[in-house]
């Protein structure tokens, strides 16, 4: 997407909620969450999967899993229908440092046993 490429290289963000690429995530440890897709945004500068995850106490929390851009994923065969509401999946990635229910995606494992081909670059 025109101009949005810039976001990945911006070094000015300081505020806790600013656009910050990897810096927002704890890249020292991966977590895996299993859940049900509620929405998928095939867009720039990041694609985002929204999915419901049930915790140990049965409480459902909606998480947002960020991927690279649609421009990067499209050549790998992704479309806005690649992930559908209702899909069961397991997402492995880095959690947001501030505790927000957000992940940076490293791996997506679908219920049919397949792993979606992704690009982990920001």
């Amino acid at each position: 997407m025109k101009n949005l490429f810039l976001i990945a290289v911006l070094l000015t963000a300081q505020a806790a909620l600013a656009h910050h690429g990897y810096a927002a995530f704890d890249t020292t440890a991966e977590v895996t969450l299993k859940g049900t897709v509620t929405d998928f945004h095939f867009t720039n500068p990041h694609c985002v999967i929204e999915f419901d995850v049930k915790d140990d106490k049965g409480q459902v929390r909606n998480w947002k899993a960020e991927l690279t851009s649609a421009n990067h994923l499209a050549p790998k065969g992704w479309t806005e229908a690649s992930v559908q509401p209702g899909d069961e999946l397991a997402i492995t990635g880095y959690r947001a440092k501030n505790g927000a229910p957000s992940l940076w995606v490293n791996k997506i494992h679908m219920a049919n046993g397949e792993d979606l081909k992704i690009d982990t670059s920001n």
Binding site: M1, K2, N3, L4, F5, T43, N44, A70, N71, H72, A74, P75, D119, S121
Partner: peptide, 26 residues
């Protein structure tokens, strides 16, 4: 591009061409 629209460029064949041509401009 001339019309100054934000447009998803999903026609870039791969990351290497993207890196060479579309990191700094459309």
């Amino acid at each position: 591009d001339a019309e100054r629209r934000i447009h998803p460029e999903t026609n870039i064949p791969n990351d290497r061409v993207q890196h060479a041509c579309a990191r700094c401009h459309s």
